[in-house]
């Protein structure tokens, strides 16, 4: 991996209510690259994004974005940094009381004093980039899941961010929308000269578009490498994940007391 990193995570630990969520994470996201964080649901992927965005504070270790330690910034500094980040939420998180146009215009209106006709041009450009210029009058409730995700993407890139974060961009999409989003992630990263972090458990789709992959399991990085490395990997966990096997290092059973103890009568269940 080459180039000066945009995001650098060192020895990161995070626990919630005394329960460790992330342990000893080291991660580097270089400029202009698409990096994926993969793993099962609930393994701490989204938490990692929130730590990069400064919505959570690490228990120890640090997260550096563009040379600044995120959790050392005050509110103003954090907000200034966030203007240069875009985030696509899992289900779009569009503002339901605003039209598509107003959603995309939101940040421009909040953070700039641009005249309305310039804002209009900018919004149309962003909507054109995601192919939804014609839908600018619609309300979020009138959009399909894939369209909502594309509008949210247009909104995330409204201020031409240096870092775009995607939280499960592929979840719940039909195959066509899936490839559109994948395609958009790739092209927008290039067009904006930005870096992208994709948090996902959709292996096949993301392996097509990413430069580098981190595999997270139970709050630890268990494997990393390029898409090709991952496909060929014979580490048991990665193999199970990439090929979608039901049983393996990740057991089918949720941790429980011994089966026999629980179903045999006359034994105390609590103990």
């Amino acid at each position: 991996m080459s180039g000066e990193p945009l995001v650098e995570i060192r020895n990161l630990n995070f626990s919630y209510d005394g329960r460790p969520v992330l342990t000893g994470i080291n991660m580097v996201i270089p400029r202009g690259k698409v990096v994926a964080i993969m793993g099962q649901s609930g393994c701490g992927k989204t938490t990692t994004l929130r730590l990069i965005g400064g919505q959570l504070k690490p228990t120890s270790g640090h997260v550096k974005v563009a040379g600044q330690v995120v959790h050392d910034l005050d509110d103003d500094g954090l907000y200034r940094l966030r203007r240069r980040m875009g985030m696509l939420f899992q289900f779009g998180a569009l503002f339901t009381d605003m039209s598509v146009f107003d959603n995309v215009a939101f940040q421009l209106r909040e953070h700039t004093d641009l005249p309305e006709d310039l804002i209009r041009d900018l919004v149309m450009m962003k909507l054109h980039a995601v192919g939804l210029r014609g839908a600018h009058r619609l309300m979020p409730s009138e959009l399909s899941g894939g369209m909502a995700r594309r509008v949210a993407l247009a909104r995330a890139i409204a201020l031409d961010p240096m870092l775009i974060m995607y939280d499960e961009p592929f979840a719940g999409l039909d195959p066509i929308s899936l490839s559109i989003i994948g395609e958009l992630i790739r092209t927008l990263t290039q067009a904006l000269g930005a870096s992208s972090v994709v948090v996902t458990h959709d292996v096949q789709e993301s392996l097509k578009i990413v430069d580098y992959v981190y595999f997270v399991s139970a709050g630890r990085i268990v494997a990393e490498g390029t898409a090709e490395d991952i496909r060929r990997s014979d580490a048991p966990y990665v193999h199970q994940f990439v090929w979608g096997e039901a049983d393996g290092p990740v057991p089918f059973q949720y941790p429980a007391p011994a089966y026999a103890d629980q179903i045999l009568p006359g034994r105390a269940l609590h103990g």
Binding site: G53, R80, R82, M87, F89, A93, L94, F95, Q107, E110
Partner: peptide, 11 residues
């Protein structure tokens, strides 16, 4: 997640 999205948009 609209509130969260707003926070991430520095609002």
């Amino acid at each position: 997640e609209q509130l969260s999205a707003m926070e991430m948009m520095a609002v």
